[in-house]
């Protein structure tokens, strides 16, 4: 019974990781790509490690899998937040259909939402 539960966790984790990587290819913008990829892959990796812990129990491999899951769960959102804040101050443009920019041009110092005509030339290229 607990073996079946562990395999279900592993398969769900692999599916979430694959969907996160597909979002990394398909989304239009850096920030959209970043949220899709980090959320999906974090949940997928944690599910996979928790499935290995359920399969192996309190052995050497199971404890290490649990430690690895906790580490990924703690550090992946921190890394994504630092990188997205850094690229916001670096001046990477948002998508041209973005409606609300709460961080605003008054804090960063420049307009970050992309103009539509430059996006049209981008799509042709």
């Amino acid at each position: 019974m607990i073996n079946l539960l562990g395999w279900i966790f592993i398969v769900i984790g692999v599916c979430f990781a694959l969907l996160g990587c597909l979002g990394l290819v398909r989304f239009p913008d850096l920030y959209n790509r970043m949220q899709a990829a980090t959320k999906g892959v974090t949940l997928g990796a944690c599910g996979l490690m928790f499935g290995i812990f359920l399969l192996k129990g309190f052995s050497v491999m199971g404890i290490k899998a649990l430690v690895c899951a906790l580490f990924i769960l703690l550090t992946m959102p921190v890394a994504a937040h630092v990188l997205s804040r850094g690229s916001l101050f670096f001046g990477i443009k948002m998508w041209h259909k973005t409606e609300l920019d709460k961080f605003g041009p008054d804090k960063v110092g420049k307009e970050l939402i992309e103009k539509p005509d430059s996006e049209a030339t981008d799509e042709k290229a």
Binding site: V14, G20, L30, G44, A45, C68, M76, A80, I92
Partner: peptide, 16 residues
């Protein structure tokens, strides 16, 4: 930043 985040995601995939 696209390259940095994709290399990060790729190393998490290699962890899995």
């Amino acid at each position: 930043s696209d390259r940095v985040i994709s290399v990060d995601i790729m190393s998490i995939i290699f962890t899995c």
